[in-house]
Measured scan of single mutants.
Amino acid sequence: MIINNLKLIREKKKISQSELAALLESSRQTINGIEKNKYNPSLQLALKIAYYLNTPLEDIFQWQ
């Protein structure tokens, strides 16, 4: 199971779900699903999230 700190990191950087979704060329619903652990992002999307949040991938997503 993958757990994530996306919501915590996103809020700390003062970025809304909609703003992050626009940067990622994704939907706000996708970001919401990832944050609620209802959806696991593809590797490509996970890497883009890490890039746009300027945060190491392993700080956002962790195996448990």
Rank of each mutant, 00 (worst) to 15 (best):
M1T: 07
M1G: 04
M1L: 15
M1V: 09
I2P: 05
I2T: 11
I2H: 09
I3N: 07
I3R: 10
I3F: 09
N4F: 08
N4C: 12
N4A: 03
N5K: 07
L6F: 01
L6Q: 01
K7S: 07
K7Q: 11
K7N: 05
I9P: 01
R10E: 03
R10D: 03
R10Y: 08
R10N: 01
R10P: 02
E11V: 10
E11H: 08
E11Y: 06
E11F: 07
E11W: 06
E11D: 08
K12L: 13
K12P: 01
K13D: 03
K13R: 11
K13M: 14
K14N: 14
K14G: 15
K14E: 08
K14Q: 12
I15N: 01
I15A: 02
S16W: 05
S16G: 07
S18T: 13
S18M: 12
S18I: 11
S18E: 14
S18A: 13
E19Y: 10
E19C: 13
E19H: 11
L20A: 00
L20S: 06
L20V: 01
A21D: 01
A21F: 00
A21K: 02
A21S: 06
A22K: 14
A22N: 12
L23R: 09
L23C: 11
L23G: 09
L24A: 12
S26Q: 11
S26L: 15
S26M: 15
Q29F: 09
T30E: 11
T30K: 10
T30D: 07
I31E: 01
I31Q: 01
N32I: 14
N32Y: 08
N32P: 01
G33W: 13
G33M: 15
G33H: 13
G33F: 13
I34C: 04
I34T: 01
I34R: 00
E35T: 02
K36R: 12
K36P: 02
K36D: 13
K36Q: 15
N37C: 12
N37K: 07
N37G: 15
N37H: 09
K38Y: 13
K38M: 14
K38E: 15
Y39F: 14
Y39I: 15
Y39V: 14
Y39M: 13
N40R: 14
N40L: 14
N40Q: 14
N40V: 15
N40F: 13
N40P: 12
P41L: 06
P41M: 04
P41N: 04
S42T: 12
S42A: 05
S42K: 06
L43N: 06
Q44R: 13
Q44D: 12
L45D: 03
L45G: 00
L45W: 02
A46W: 03
A46R: 05
A46P: 03
L47G: 06
L47Y: 10
L47N: 10
K48S: 08
K48L: 08
K48C: 08
I49V: 05
I49P: 00
I49F: 02
A50C: 07
Y51C: 14
Y51E: 10
Y51N: 08
Y51K: 10
Y52G: 03
Y52H: 13
L53E: 00
L53F: 07
L53M: 05
N54H: 11
N54T: 08
N54Y: 06
T55R: 03
T55C: 08
P56F: 06
P56H: 07
P56E: 08
L57P: 02
L57Q: 02
L57I: 11
E58D: 14
E58F: 11
E58N: 13
D59L: 13
D59H: 12
D59P: 04
D59S: 09
I60P: 02
I60V: 07
I60Q: 03
I60W: 03
F61M: 01
F61S: 00
F61Q: 00
F61E: 00
F61N: 00
Q62H: 06
Q62S: 08
W63Q: 04
Q64K: 13
Q64E: 14
Q64W: 07
